[in-house]
Each structure stands twice: as structure tokens, then as C-alpha cells.
């Protein structure tokens, strides 16, 4: 029971991190129709900016705003100089160009910072653990990450559902030409949305920095899972991204935690361990396949 509770917390934490990434990716994909493979690079840049500021300038609390600013600025620059030219092109051009951006950013980091992974310390106040129940310590930092994830999710919901900007974003993801015909500065809106997505990716990057290793290629690893999230949730929908992130994060964590254990009811130890691990690694793709069969446009398609 205790193990289940702890694994649910782990799943929730992964889900909320995935949501931060998926929110930006789904908006860019849904509203602008651009497949941005370099979204993971923004996550990496956030983590690197955070790690560098934390070690060279000092302090986690300075690292977070630095990462947000760096990711958002790079995101806006990316939109203005590269992505803007891709709106009218087909998906193949977009994939090629944004894949090029991945290589570019990886190259820049390798050249400027080096290939060795970086270390990022967490703030001392959060570096310990809290005894949630007797015999169940849980890292304070992970609880804080969850807290930030929930706050950001609520804030995003508020912005999308209750503000004028949110209205434009929703309208833009639904009927782009109509919004533009009504006199809205669609180019400015696109830049803003892209910057916002980059900011969220940077936030996710700097938050996982102290947990995972900050290294080149960290963005590509997480990007695949993020795409699964937005495909399951429905492209262009923040609500879909949230539900998709929860579903995928939970499935992945619980699969890794319990698949070998369940298989041990029928199979011998080593076989169950091996098979369970393999099953856990394909679990999220199975979920995606089932979701697509039942709801081909995702669970909460934008404008659906």
C-alpha cells in the first residue's frame, strides 16, 4: 500500500514535468501547425542556463529566472528567424529545419560548455526529504516540483479559459484564418505563443536539472514521450495535454514499478524481471495505440 502510494507520487511528478513540455509543444503544433522537434532543445537550454548560472553566478533561486529568460529569448529568436519561414511549408521541411536546430544547439553546447554532463545543486532547504508517513520519506524537492507543476497548470488553465489572450489562442488553434481576418496580429500572437511554450520548456528543464543529469541530448529523450502525450491528449488542447501527461506519466511509472511484480505471479523471477522491464518500456506506446484506435483525434482534440 505504501509502495503504491509512493509510486503514485512518482507518477504524478513525472506527469507534471511532462505537462510543462507538452503544453508548449501542443500549442505550437495546434495553433501554428508546426512540428517543432527543437522543443526538446529549449528544455535542454533551460537546464544548461540554470546549471551554469547556479554554479558560476551562484544559487538555485537565481538559476530559475535565468533559465526562464534564456529559454524564452531563444524561443522567440527561433520563431522570428527560423520557424516563421516554415508556416507555409509542408511538414517535411519543418521536420528537417527543426531537426537541424537540434544539431545546431547540441553543437553549440558541446563547443561552448563541453560534452561532460553538468552538475546542478538543489537549494539546501529542499535537498532533504520529508517523512510523509512513518517509514515513507519522500524527497522534498520532488514535492516542490509537483507544487510548481500544479500552480503552472492552474495558471495556464486560467489564461486559456478566462483571458482575452486565451480566447485568441483557442480561436487561433481552431480557425486560424478567421482570427486573422478579424484583424488580430496573428504574427505577434504566434511569436508570443512560441515564447510561452519555450518558457515552459525552460522551466521543466531547470526543474529537472538537479534530479537528472544536465547533458547534451537530454531534450531528444524527453521529446519522444512528449509527442506521445500530445497525440494521446489531442493536438492543440491544453486540457488534452494535461490528461495525456497524467495518463502517460502514471502508466510509465506504474509499469516500471509493478509490471515485473505482476508477471512474477505466473513466471519465474529472472524471466519476469526481463519481460516486465520490456513491457514497461513499451507501455506508453500501447496506451497511445489504444487511445488512437478509440479516439483517433486524441482524448480532447482542440475544437472537437
Amino acid at each position: 500500500m505504501q509502495l503504491l502510494f509512493e509510486q503514485l507520487l512518482n507518477g504524478l511528478q513525472l506527469s507534471l514535468t511532462l505537462f510543462l513540455l507538452a503544453a508548449g509543444l501542443t500549442l505550437v503544433f495546434g495553433i501554428m501547425g508546426v512540428i517543432n522537434l527543437a522543443h526538446g532543445s529549449l528544455y535542454m537550454l533551460g537546464a544548461y542556463a540554470g546549471a551554469l548560472v547556479a554554479s558560476k553566478v551562484g544559487g538555485f533561486w537565481l538559476a530559475v529566472p535565468a533559465a526562464l529568460v534564456a529559454a524564452a529569448l531563444v524561443g522567440v529568436a527561433m520563431e522570428l528567424f527560423v520557424v516563421r519561414r516554415l508556416y507555409a511549408r509542408d511538414h517535411l521541411s519543418q521536420v528537417l529545419a527543426t531537426f537541424g536546430l537540434i544539431l545546431f544547439f547540441n553543437g553549440i553546447i558541446a563547443w561552448g560548455v563541453g560534452r561532460a554532463p553538468l552538475q546542478m545543486d538543489m537549494p539546501a532547504q529542499l535537498s532533504s526529504f520529508i517523512e510523509l508517513a512513518p517509514g515513507l520519506p519522500y524527497p522534498t524537492y520532488r514535492l516542490a516540483v509537483m507544487g510548481v507543476g500544479v500552480v503552472v497548470a492552474l495558471a495556464l488553465w486560467y489564461v486559456i479559459a478566462r483571458t482575452r489572450l486565451g480566447m485568441l489562442i483557442r480561436a487561433g488553434s481552431d480557425k486560424r484564418e478567421m482570427v486573422s481576418a478579424l484583424g488580430v496580429d496573428i504574427a505577434g500572437l504566434f511569436t508570443l505563443v512560441f515564447g510561452l511554450g519555450a518558457l515552459l520548456a525552460g522551466l521543466a528543464g531547470v526543474m529537472v536539472g538537479p534530479i537528472r543529469s544536465v547533458q547534451i541530448g537530454m531534450g531528444e529523450q524527453v521529446l519522444i514521450t512528449t509527442f506521445v502525450v500530445i497525440v494521446v491528449g489531442g493536438i492543440g488542447s491544453i486540457r488534452g495535454a494535461f490528461v495525456g501527461a497524467l495518463l502517460i506519466g502514471m502508466c510509465d511509472t506504474l509499469g516500471r514499478a509493478f509490471a515485473p511484480m505482476l508477471l512474477k505471479l505466473w513466471l519465474s523471477g529472472p524471466i519476469a524481471d526481463g519481460l516486465g522491464a520490456s513491457l514497461a518500456s513499451i507501455m506508453i506506446y500501447l496506451v497511445m495505440a489504444v487511445a488512437l484506435v478509440l479516439r483517433p483525434r486524441g482524448l480532447f482534440p482542440a475544437g472537437g
Binding site: 509502495l3 529537472v208 537528472r212 529523450q221 511509472t253 529472472p270 524481471d273 526481463g274 522491464a277
Partner: peptide
């Protein structure tokens, strides 16, 4: 007690660490 196989590009081990604790 247990052999745990992780993903090749996995970098978050919270689920595995909980299994070790148990």
C-alpha cells in the same frame, strides 16, 4: 532479491528506487 532492468535512455529512477526501498 530483485533484478531491475531500466530503460536505455532513462534518467528518472524514482520508481526503481521505491522498489529498492520495498
Amino acid at each position: 532479491a530483485e533484478e531491475i532492468f531500466t530503460g536505455l535512455d532513462q534518467t528518472d529512477f524514482s520508481a526503481e528506487i521505491a522498489r529498492i526501498r520495498a
